[in-house]
């Protein structure tokens, strides 16, 4: 097989993996698709073999739609948790910059505040600009709230409780 065909095949499979990462056993599916693509390319060429599979996102959607019930999306959830952490850190930094500006506006000094459950000592003087903080259980609670909650929502964690697709469909029809 030519290098360009291997590159095409792997590029397609990597894109498929991205979309199918929430499919249980997607590594096995990827392995089988690699085998099928290799063999089909021998008959019709790699471009045609790849084209017959359609868009990687659509192919992944086909696999997911063939599951007997929806599964949690743990990979997507990591991005949600990251977004939650980003917002928490961003707010903390913005708040800290605001406090520093306020200290500068009143001629400098130090102030002790609690930011998201974390005691922080802000200092802005001619000699020193610093923030000192001490992690507490409350800090941990804030961290967990900012990351775990988006993680569970992003994962659609309620899908852990098995419920047949038929039941879900009939319920949606009933409403």
């Amino acid at each position: 097989m030519r290098l360009i065909d291997i590159a095409r095949r792997e590029a397609f499979l990597n894109r498929f993996t991205w979309y199918a990462q929430d499919y249980p056993g997607y590594v096995k599916v990827k392995r089988e698709l690699r085998r099928e693509l290799t063999l089909t390319a021998d008959e019709v060429g790699m471009p045609a073999a790849i084209a017959s599979l359609g868009h990687p996102a659509q192919l992944a959607a086909e696999y997911l739609s063939n599951l007997e019930r929806p599964y949690p999306r743990w990979s997507t959830a990591v991005w949600w948790a990251g977004a939650g952490l980003y917002v928490l850190v961003g707010l903390g930094v913005a708040y800290s910059l605001g406090v520093m500006d306020s200290l500068a506006a009143v001629g400098g000094g130090s102030v002790d505040l609690v930011v998201f459950g974390t005691p922080v000592k802000f200092t802005n003087t001619a000699e020193e600009i610093s923030t000192q903080f001490q992690l507490t259980p409350a800090s941990f609670v804030w961290f967990m709230t900012a990351t775990a909650a988006p993680y569970l929502i992003g994962a659609r964690a309620w899908r852990l409780w098995p419920r047949s697709r038929e039941a879900a469909i009939s319920e949606s029809h009933a409403t």
């Binding site: 099928e36 063999l39 089909t40 008959e43 017959s52 599979l53 359609g54 086909e62 739609s65």
Partner: peptide, 24 residues
Amino acid sequence: YGYELVTRLHAAGLAGIGAGTVYP
């Protein structure tokens, strides 16, 4: 095998069904 099933469906007049539908 997979791709042969696709070609047989095409031969039967179901050209709209691709490997991306058959494999899943």
